Simulated scan of single mutants.
Amino acid sequence: MDRAELVELLSPEGLRLLDSLPPYDAALDVVKMVGDLRKAGHPPALVSAVLTQSKLRAKAVPKFGEFASRMLFTEAGLEQATRLQVAALHAGRFVTAGLHRVADLGSGIGGDAMAMAALDLAVTAVDADEVTATMASFNLAPFPGASVEHCDAEDFDLTGFDAAWLDPARRTAGHGNTSRLRAEDYSPSLDFVFALAKRLPIGVKLGPGHDRDQIPAEAEAQWISVNGSLVEMGLWFGALARDGIRRSALLLRADGPAELTAEADSEDAQVRELGSYVYEPDGAVIRARLIGDLARQLDAGMLSDGIAYLTSDAVTPTPFASAFRVLEVLPFDEKKLRLALQERKIGTLEIKKRGVDVDPAALRTRLKLKGSGSGTLIVTRMAGHRVSLLVERVA
């Protein structure tokens, strides 16, 4: 979206037209809808803009819930925006720390700033892109304690602010499809971010796979997963970092949050023989390197050095890992696998793999599955050899 399209969209006519559209449905005849809107006298650019926004609002519901229907987005801005559930946790850190005036540097379309404003923090959203900053202004309009500045994050005057939140752009500039940047090309730069941490309490959102060697020793690093999907690594400095915690795995699940914390990376548990059960730790636990602490909670050991599967003789319920009962151990031999699966009439197969070079989709095709049953196969290494574990999930 360019500036001219945005101006049309933000006109009274544009906003009325957008709000008058039926809920977006991929099955709708878009060509007919475009034709109907054009016949009604609406300009082509406006029709394109409102239909794009309608589609983005529908796409934004998993992140923003009912708020999505009153927000504006760019494709890139929505992709990079923080889920509202997670943004609320970010905002809560500032409130708990007793901070009041926060600069959101690199605010995007304003998701985090919305959560902060909702908790009565005085927040200024700052973004270097004019279109994105304008959309943030629209999204933050209902919050009297929020303001927006069109400015480069590194040039913004922080006088009077007692904290900052930063979400460095990890993709090339633009509003549509973008490509990933190298860490040294983030905007604002990580050098700026970590220098700022020496002056103010700050929080920083980075990708969950970010190089752990770049985590400053004084930061609390927290990996967050939402319903099993790893979404971010947050770094917290100064008053925003919790005492005695430098590693955290926070799981946001339908049945409530669960968190595993430690003062440092945990030491891995010892490798042991395969037991009756195998555990697959959540991605946040793996990234936080807290597998060893989890293993000790479960009285489990590592299935193999350097591979994130645990095993035990008894199952212990835990929110931090999925548990599987071992039904059969097979060598990694596709013929024997095919026969074993045919005997069990397994036609639907979930394939998990770690430590082996296997394409699950291609393997599933070669196994020629038939039958009404379903199952789970773990392909991994054990005692230096590739093995296939036929397992079933433990509820």
Rank of each mutant, 00 (worst) to 15 (best):
A288R: 14
L260F: 05
V379M: 06
G203Y: 09
A340D: 09
V379E: 00
R83N: 01
R364F: 06
A197R: 02
A169H: 06
R180S: 13
L99S: 04
T376Y: 02
K352V: 05
E263H: 03
V329I: 03
G160Y: 01
A60R: 05
D313F: 00
E328D: 04
D185F: 08
D333P: 02
Y309S: 01
D357K: 13
M1E: 11
D211L: 05
T316I: 05
A249M: 08
V47I: 05
Q85D: 14
H150R: 08
G110N: 00
F64E: 01
A133I: 03
E263T: 08
D333I: 12
H90C: 03
R170T: 10
G176L: 10
F194Y: 15
V193G: 11
A133L: 05
P317E: 14
E79F: 04
A60L: 07
E218I: 13
D129F: 12
D243R: 12
G174L: 13
V285R: 00
A40C: 06
Q297K: 14
V379R: 01
E263M: 11
V50L: 06
L196M: 07
T318M: 03
F73K: 13
S69K: 15
F67W: 13
L196D: 08
R364D: 03
E13W: 04
I378Q: 01
A141K: 14
K345F: 11
D359S: 13
G371P: 08
L330S: 12
L294I: 12
A128T: 06
L37N: 08
V285T: 02
A314C: 03
A323R: 12
A117V: 10
V356L: 04
V47M: 02
N177C: 00
L140D: 10
D243Y: 02
T311C: 03
H175L: 06
L298V: 07
F192T: 06
L389C: 06
G209D: 02
A117G: 14
H385I: 00
